[in-house]
Amino acid sequence: MNTASCPCASGQALDQCCGRYHAGVPAPSADALMRSRYSAYALGLIDYLVTTTLPAQQAGLDRQAISAWSLGSTWLGLAVENAQAISGEPEHAYVTFTARWRDADGEHSHQERSAFVAHAGRWYFIDPTVDLKSGRNDPCPCASGQKFKKCCSSYL
């Protein structure tokens, strides 16, 4: 049992917080997934970061760059400012947060409003830096069965 504090700043032990998601339990919300992704950066869990990104985008991720940033940084804290669930089929959400870290260039702070989509009982991060290569009338890459323009396109 790991009683270390969870890097996501929940105040809970890692095993009772993000560690269970890292071990395979699906995150129950976009907020929980976002927190677990921050913790994965802090812990160097690159495979988790890849598998929790929208599957259609995973091949476009730069694993080496993700690993270098994760392992080359000291993660200083996370503050979640807002989590907004958007009902529909599939469900989407936005999570606004500020992450802080230190690297060879000093201390940094980054505020972001990230988009997420739920599919087949799991939440996924929609990475705005990875092109989905979908036309407006193509099937949505989240596998919802809807056209891209009616589903995830507005979340990029």
Rank of each mutant, 00 (worst) to 15 (best):
A99Y: 06
R35S: 08
E91S: 00
E91L: 07
F97S: 13
G106H: 07
S87R: 11
A115S: 11
A85I: 04
A32Y: 00
G19D: 05
D15K: 14
P128T: 06
G44P: 00
L49I: 10
Q57W: 01
L132G: 14
A65D: 00
A104T: 14
F116N: 05
H119M: 13
C152K: 01
D103V: 13
L78F: 04
A65L: 00
A83N: 11
G60Q: 08
Q84R: 13
Q12I: 13
R113L: 03
Y94E: 08
L76C: 13
A93N: 05
L76H: 07
S5Q: 14
A68M: 03
S134K: 15
Q16L: 15
R37G: 03
A104C: 13
S153A: 10
V50N: 02
G77A: 14
Q146E: 15
L71N: 06
T51L: 07
G11I: 15
A42K: 02
H119L: 11
S39C: 12
T53K: 07
N137E: 10
F148M: 15
Q57S: 09
V80E: 04
V80P: 10
L132A: 11
D127H: 05
Y155L: 07
P139Y: 08
C152V: 02
A32W: 03
A32F: 01
P7D: 04
G24I: 13
Y155M: 08
N137D: 12
G121P: 00
A42I: 09
S39P: 02
W123T: 02
K149N: 10
A83H: 13
K149R: 06
Y41I: 04
V130F: 03
P55L: 08
A13R: 12
A42W: 02
S70A: 11
C151Q: 00
S134T: 14
S154P: 00
D62W: 00
W69V: 03
K150C: 02
L76G: 04
C142T: 11
